[in-house]
Design a protein around this nucleic acid. Structure first.
Lengths: 196, 196
DNA sequence: GGATATTGATTGAACGTTCATTCAAACACA
DNA sequence: TGTGTTTGAATGAACGTTCAATCAATATCC
């Protein structure tokens, strides 16, 4: 039974402060001193709740991943199993959900991608996400296309989602969410219109 | 070694050592000491030639950009001005040139993208690159499509190039260069087949 | 029910490490 | 000898972690 700050409350507060710190200073300059100051607590508390800075980083990535999963799942609920266009659109829209396209989240994703190339813990998480997007799409396309084309379609739409997202993240004026969604949807429609 | 550390030779040697260091250790752990050791020189030499670590980083990004520009330009030489498919394919192929798809370059690009969000010098360089890819493509598509569709086509193909590249960079087994090129080309063909 | 013990959250200064930079000295060549 | 190159130890700043001390909220006991 926690006393004042409930355990999950503190953890979420620190994760949010971490996202803000990465957004404001970049991962390299997101020191625990700055993160703690943004959360209005002292430095020691981070090690207390996450066992160290890297624990907080992993928890932050898990947090973003969970929000992405939720954003997609919510949009797919209630859709008919035959409604391939509906499911594909839901997957596309979920990937451009506001939880994934705000500046702090985009900046953090970019930093985590780079870090994941040498941090096994982050690499595993990133890989789960990459495969989930691909196989979700592939599963839908297979309902309408032969396996080879379905694979190509899934690779293409997944790549387009990530690429449009990336270019939006790097663009100084920010990301054009509706434009991205429209182009990704158009690409999916192209593949689904293929006759086999 | 004697004087024969020609100024440009030394600089290129240090840039190459920097790429290797970022590949092996990641940007955060690519310290001056490690870079210098990989180049077989002492730490002070980096400040002597680049004025500091950030100077070396900027020079390294310029180096990658120059190689990308060369890879595209070479492939476009000798093509007819009417050959839209040829130019688009050259742009696509150049972006997946071996200078851009080796592990060290991919890792370094990722790190630089993340860093560029808070380093004005890197941000300018990154932006030049982003716009160049887009406007090169747009210029070609305009020869065949009305302006609105040409813009969409360019955004789509540019996004697909970057997205496929990104997913390849993050994939543990490495990037499938020919697969990426094929999918990007297919997407370009789709847009060019549109009737207006 | 009031006093006391227990628990777990929280603090922040101290510690040891690591890093980029600097610069006087050494060096190589013309 | 003079000039530009190279060295590497010294410097000081900054970082993450640790931990004894403090505090607030419950639990236990008489």
């Amino acid at each position: 039974m926690p006393h004042h700050g409930s355990l999950n409350g503190r953890r979420e507060q620190l994760i949010r402060a971490n996202l803000t710190a990465i957004h404001q200073y970049g991962l390299a300059d997101a020191t625990i001193a700055r993160i703690a100051r943004l959360a209005g607590v002292s430095t020691g508390i981070i090690s207390h709740y996450f066992g160290g800075k890297s624990g907080l980083m992993e928890a932050t990535m898990r947090h973003l991943l969970a929000e992405l999963g939720r954003a997609v799942t919510e949009r797919r609920q209630g859709l008919d199993a035959d409604d391939v266009e509906g499911h594909v659109d839901a997957i596309i829209d979920g990937n451009f959900d506001s939880t994934q396209t705000n500046r702090a989240a985009m900046r953090t994703w970019l930093e985590f991608w780079a870090s994941s190339m040498h941090q096994p813990a982050l690499q595993r998480l990133q890989r789960v996400n990459e495969r989930r997007l691909y196989s979700n799409l592939c599963h839908q396309f297979r309902k309408r296309l032969p396996p080879t084309q379905a694979r190509d379609a899934a690779r293409s739409v997944a790549g387009l989602i990530d690429g449009l997202w990336l270019r939006g993240a790097l663009h100084p004026d920010g990301i054009d969410i509706n434009g991205c969604r429209r182009l990704a949807r158009e690409n999916a429609r192209f593949w689904l219109a293929q006759t086999h």
